[in-house]
Amino acid sequence: SASLEDVKTAVLGLLVILQTKLYTLPASHATRVYEMLVSHIQLHYKHSYTLPIASSIRLQAFDFLLLLRADSLHRLGLPNKDGVVRFSPYCVCDYMEPERGSEKKTSGPLSPPTGPPGPAPAGPAVRLGSVPYSLLFRVLLQCLKQESDWKVLKLVLGRLPESLRYKVLIFTSPCSVDQLCSALCSMLSGPKTLERLRGAPEGF
């Protein structure tokens, strides 16, 4: 439990870093931090981490990651405290083949985003970082199938509809809506759902 406290501190630090690096160059920093966060949550489900502190780590990670939004130009952003989304000039939600690297070039400044813009690109060529939603999407499927803490599952179920409104997140990387529907149906009809959940409301 003591070591998990250190892990929790590290994860919180990564969330803060991602919130900053999403809007700064090099964009590969945001890509790497995002991948680290998603990989860490995957390990929770792989090794069945069920301690309360592990659940709190997942809760905080999902609470942040499910706020990711994308505009029509595929640029990622996060809402501010007033709910207004600021889109990044440097990070996009497109999935890119590994051989192309985590970044790609664009020939010049991008068109203005639909929300308040981030800082304008400084040079004639900007390297865009790929932060594909499919990585998070796979972890969300694991959550629906394996999550043991009701608070975490409730958060994910509550945030998913709003995330799905931003269709560009889903359609720019390999996210299977069929698998999502299947996971939701299995969660509702499967007898093991109630068996594994802690803290579920009576009558769920």
Rank of each mutant, 00 (worst) to 15 (best):
S1N: 12
A2R: 10
A2W: 07
A2H: 13
A2V: 08
A2S: 10
S3I: 06
S3E: 12
S3N: 11
S3M: 10
S3V: 07
L4A: 08
E5L: 08
V7I: 08
K8P: 06
T9P: 02
T9I: 08
A10Y: 00
V11E: 02
V11H: 03
L12W: 10
G13C: 00
I17M: 09
I17Y: 01
L18P: 01
Q19N: 09
Q19W: 04
T20C: 11
T20G: 08
K21Q: 06
L22S: 03
L22R: 02
P26S: 04
A27I: 13
A27P: 12
S28Y: 11
S28H: 11
H29C: 06
A30D: 01
T31H: 07
V33L: 07
Y34S: 02
Y34K: 00
E35V: 08
E35H: 14
M36R: 04
L37P: 00
L37G: 00
L37F: 02
L37H: 00
V38A: 07
S39A: 10
S39F: 08
H40G: 01
I41Y: 00
I41D: 00
Q42T: 10
H44P: 00
Y45C: 00
K46S: 12
K46N: 13
H47A: 10
S48E: 14
Y49G: 01
Y49L: 03
T50R: 11
L51Y: 04
L51P: 01
P52Q: 07
I53K: 02
A54F: 03
A54P: 01
S56W: 07
I57A: 01
R58L: 01
R58P: 00
L67R: 15
L67W: 09
L67V: 08
L67N: 15
L68H: 03
R69Y: 01
D71Y: 00
S72F: 10
L73P: 03
H74R: 06
R75L: 03
L76M: 12
L76N: 03
L76D: 02
L76S: 06
G77D: 02
G77T: 04
L78E: 02
K81D: 14
G83N: 09
G83V: 03
V84N: 12
V85P: 08
V85I: 15
R86N: 07
F87V: 05
S88G: 04
P89Y: 05
P89K: 10
P89G: 06
Y90S: 08
Y90F: 15
Y90R: 04
C91I: 11
C91V: 13
V92E: 04
C93K: 03
D94E: 08
D94F: 02
D94G: 07
Y95Q: 11
M96H: 09
E97K: 10
E99I: 14
E103L: 15
K104D: 15
K105H: 15
K105D: 13
S107E: 12
G108W: 12
G108A: 13
G108F: 12
G108C: 10
P109D: 13
L110Y: 13
S111T: 12
P112M: 09
P112H: 15
P113G: 11
P116D: 15
P116Y: 15
P116S: 13
P117W: 15
A120T: 15
A125D: 13
R127L: 14
G129N: 10
G129H: 15
S130V: 11
S130P: 06
S130F: 10
V131G: 04
V131S: 04
V131P: 03
P132T: 05
Y133R: 03
Y133G: 04
Y133T: 07
Y133L: 05
S134G: 06
S134M: 07
L135N: 11
L135E: 13
L135C: 10
L135P: 12
L135M: 15
L136E: 01
F137G: 03
F137W: 09
R138W: 05
V139P: 06
V139R: 01
L140A: 06
L140K: 00
L140C: 08
L141H: 04
Q142Y: 08
Q142F: 08
Q142S: 14
C143M: 04
C143K: 00
L144I: 15
L144Q: 00
L144T: 02
Q146F: 13
E147Y: 00
D149S: 07
D149W: 02
W150P: 04
W150Y: 07
K151Y: 09
V152C: 05
K154A: 07
K154G: 07
L155P: 03
L155G: 10
L157T: 01
L157C: 04
G158P: 01
G158M: 14
S163G: 07
S163A: 13
L164R: 00
R165Y: 06
Y166W: 09
K167I: 02
K167R: 10
K167G: 04
K167W: 02
L169W: 05
F171W: 05
F171A: 12
F171S: 11
F171L: 15
T172P: 04
P174Y: 06
P174K: 07
P174Q: 10
C175H: 05
C175A: 04
C175I: 04
S176V: 06
S176N: 11
V177R: 01
D178H: 05
Q179Y: 06
L180D: 00
L180T: 01
S182R: 08
A183Q: 15
A183S: 11
L184E: 00
S186N: 13
L188P: 03
S189P: 04
S189E: 13
S189W: 13
K192W: 10
T193D: 06
T193V: 13
E195Y: 09
E195P: 06
L197K: 02
L197P: 02
R198S: 10
P201Y: 09
P201H: 09
P201R: 08
E202K: 14
E202H: 12
E202I: 10
E202Q: 13
